[in-house]
Amino acid sequence: KRPMNAFMVWAKDERRKILQAFPDMHNSNISKILGSRWKSMSNQEKQPYYEEQARLSKIHLEKYPNYK
């Protein structure tokens, strides 16, 4: 399994927050909201998630050096 990208790292927690506020919301609607919110974020706001992506990718590479 591939490591999560920056959007997926961010969306994991955000999806949970949306589901708590709107438990009956369909997954497709949540995904649209998440995509819209991510697009509206500045690069500075996204930076911690890109850093986490890099950390996860490094761990993945160490654990699975032959993964293609």
Rank of each mutant, 00 (worst) to 15 (best):
L56S: 07
H26W: 09
P48V: 06
R16E: 14
S40G: 09
D24V: 01
S28R: 09
A11E: 09
R16M: 15
E62F: 01
M41I: 03
I18Q: 00
S31R: 09
E45M: 07
L61A: 14
Y67R: 12
L19K: 13
S42F: 04
L56I: 10
L56D: 06
K39G: 05
K63N: 12
Y64T: 12
K46L: 04
A6K: 03
I59G: 11
S31A: 13
F7H: 04
L56E: 13
L61D: 15
K46P: 01
D24T: 04
L34F: 03
A54E: 12
A21S: 09
D24K: 10
R15S: 06
K63E: 15
A54R: 11
M41W: 02
A21F: 07
K32Y: 06
G35T: 15
I30K: 02
R16S: 12
L34G: 01
V9L: 15
S57N: 13
Q20T: 11
K68F: 05
K17H: 05
E45V: 03
M41E: 03
L61E: 15
R16V: 14
W10R: 02
N43V: 13
N5M: 00
H26G: 15
E14P: 00
A54D: 14
N27K: 12
E51C: 03
N29R: 12
F22P: 05
L61N: 14
A11F: 05
A6S: 04
N29V: 14
F7Y: 14
W38C: 01
A21Y: 07
M4K: 09
E14M: 15
S40A: 11
A21M: 10
H60D: 11
I18G: 00
Y50N: 04
E52G: 02
L61R: 13
A6P: 05
M41A: 03
Q53T: 10
P65A: 12
I30P: 02
R15I: 14
K63V: 07
Y49H: 01
I30W: 01
F7T: 02
K17I: 04
D24L: 05
A54Y: 08
Q53H: 10
N27G: 08
Y67S: 14
M8Q: 15
E14H: 05
L61H: 13
N27F: 13
S28P: 02
N66I: 07
S42N: 07
M8Y: 08
F22E: 12
Y49E: 01
A11K: 00
K58L: 09
R16D: 12
M25N: 05
D24C: 04
E62C: 05
Y49N: 03
R2P: 13
D13H: 01
M8G: 14
F7I: 01
Y49P: 08
Q20S: 10
P65F: 07
P3V: 04
F22H: 15
K58C: 07
M8W: 04
E62P: 05
I33L: 12
Q53M: 09
K63T: 11
Q53F: 13
Q44D: 14
R15G: 10
F7A: 02
L34V: 01
F22K: 14
K58R: 10
E45G: 01
W38M: 00
V9Q: 04
K17F: 01
K39D: 14
K63Y: 05
F7V: 01
Q20K: 13
S28K: 14
W10D: 02
M25I: 07
I30G: 00
K68T: 09
P3D: 15
K39P: 09
E51G: 04
A11M: 04
K1I: 11
K1E: 12
Y49F: 11
K32C: 07
I18V: 06
P23S: 03
A6R: 06
P23I: 00
S28L: 07
N5C: 10
E14K: 11
S31C: 10
K46Q: 01
K58Y: 07
I59V: 14
K63L: 08
Y50I: 09
N29L: 13
E62D: 11
R2I: 14
E51W: 04
W10H: 03
M41S: 03
N27S: 14
F7G: 01
S57V: 08
Y50A: 04
R2C: 09
K68N: 13
M25V: 04
N43T: 14
K39H: 03
N66R: 08
P23Q: 02
P65G: 12
F22R: 11
R2A: 09
E52P: 01
K46I: 01
P3Q: 10
Y64P: 13
A21C: 08
D13P: 06
M4V: 10
E52K: 05
K32S: 08
P48A: 07
S31D: 15
D13M: 00
E52R: 02
N27I: 10
M41R: 03
P3H: 11
R16C: 10
N27V: 12
Y67T: 15
Y64H: 14
W38F: 04
Y67L: 11
P23C: 01
A54P: 03
K58F: 05
W10E: 00
P48I: 09
M25F: 03
P23Y: 03
S31F: 09
P48T: 07
N5W: 02
R15E: 07
P3W: 07
A21E: 15
A21N: 13
E45L: 06
L61S: 13
N5Y: 01
N66W: 06
A21W: 11
K63Q: 14
R55S: 07
Q53L: 11
V9W: 08
K39T: 03
N29D: 15
K1G: 11
A54W: 06
L34E: 00
E62H: 06
K68W: 11
L34Y: 00
K63P: 09
A6I: 00
A11S: 08
I30A: 00
P23K: 04
Q20D: 12
W10Q: 02
